[in-house]
Amino acid sequence: MKIGVVISEGPYTHQAADTAYHFVKAALAKGHEVPRVFFYHDGVNVATRLSVPPQDERNIQKNWTELAKEHGIDMVVCIAAAQRRGLLDENEAERQGKDANNIAEGFRISGLGQLIEMGIQTDRLVMFGD
């Protein structure tokens, strides 16, 4: 089965990004496909490469980057939600005249159309949030 995943709460504050991570790992282990994970609301904050959690804690961004790399998951960060919250890739930083960017490896910034498209193209859409 093709499963699309939405994460709509921020890392560390809320368990959504962790639960989604374990869900995706379990789904993949069962032979399902997870072509895309979409980050929305505060979920976009998972994608910053500048977070530095304590060494003895899980690193949510790294978990996702590694899982996506291993399984070819397309991780999309909503551009409108990202801009509000200070998440920028190289292109956006330049376009907006900002002096830095902070998107981690494996994530890409794109539009909400990618969320709708995921809903159309997958068999199930599973949303992790509040």
Partner: peptide
């Protein structure tokens, strides 16, 4: 909270997909 506004933004973008 921002949920209502960001929900409406999805609805408006999604409308272009003729679902």
């Amino acid at each position: 909270t921002i949920y209502a506004l960001e929900s409406l933004e999805v609805v408006l973008i999604g409308a272009a997909f003729e679902q």
